[in-house]
Amino acid sequence: MTPALALLHTSPVHVPVFDALRDAHHPGFELRHTVDASLLERARTAGPESVADAVGTAVARAVADGAGAVLCTCSTIGAVAERVPAGVPVLRVDRPMAAAAARERRVVVVAALEGTVEPTVDLIRGAAHGRAPYIRSLLVDGAWALFETGDRDGYLAAVVAAVDGVRDADVIVLAQASMADAAARARTAIPVLSSPRPGLAAAVAAATSGAATPR
């Protein structure tokens, strides 16, 4: 029997996104979603380490329920989740995206939350393995307020406008999973990377094999 994959979200908007990716690329694979918006709220005000115990509890509960791996879809707390000793792979959704970006020379990280910028930049630098990509960040002013009010189209439009305004880059990284649809809407010729599809693929592989992905 193939083990299930548990997903830890900080917004309910991610549930249909990952279900759709599962249906398209991993049909029949069982996903179990846990949504806790308070984790991001607390991480934003007190720092990601402030939610370490709560994340550990959520991961332990998922493992006790039979999950073969756990995927954290929030970039802000992803590093905290990865450090949880769980007995099964615990992955952050943006690691495969960061590995792809780290192969390029000039990287622009687009984010809607300031607290997501540093973890994403650090992840890309760590994936560069001796290379030194030039990384700069772009915070989309006002985008997160649109997201919080449920204006998804306005949120994505703000992200797309920022992405299409980027110059002098080899790749653009969308720092948050909620930005993924902006990649298809952008008109830039610069490659735009988002995390949900490669992150889910890595987590499904980890759950199936029972082995953590390389870091």
Rank of each mutant, 00 (worst) to 15 (best):
G115Y: 03
P16T: 09
G28K: 00
L139N: 08
V160Y: 07
A112C: 12
A157H: 03
L139D: 05
T116W: 01
H9I: 08
R83I: 08
D53P: 04
L138T: 14
A112I: 01
L146M: 14
R42F: 07
V80H: 07
I190C: 01
M179Q: 05
A37G: 09
P48Y: 01
T34F: 09
A64M: 06
F18M: 00
A43F: 02
A183S: 15
G130K: 11
A99H: 13
D94F: 02
A202V: 02
V140L: 05
R152E: 14
A86F: 08
A79W: 10
V55A: 07
D141R: 15
A184N: 14
L39V: 03
A111P: 15
R167Q: 15
G150E: 12
D170Q: 06
V192W: 08
G130P: 13
E148A: 13
L91H: 11
I135C: 14
V159C: 01
D19C: 07
P89F: 00
P85E: 12
M1T: 14
A62I: 00
A184P: 13
V63D: 01
A186P: 07
M97V: 11
I135Q: 12
G150C: 04
P16G: 03
A37Y: 04
E104N: 11
R42Q: 05
A145I: 09
E114Y: 09
A212F: 03
D181P: 07
E82V: 12
A4Q: 11
R95K: 11
A189H: 13
A183F: 06
A201W: 05
P48H: 05
A145K: 13
D53K: 05
H25W: 12
R197I: 04
H26I: 08
E82N: 10
M1Q: 13
F18H: 00
S178E: 03
S11R: 03
A58K: 00
A101Q: 08
L31H: 06
L113S: 11
V110K: 03
R22T: 03
C74F: 04
A162H: 09
A102H: 02
L39F: 02
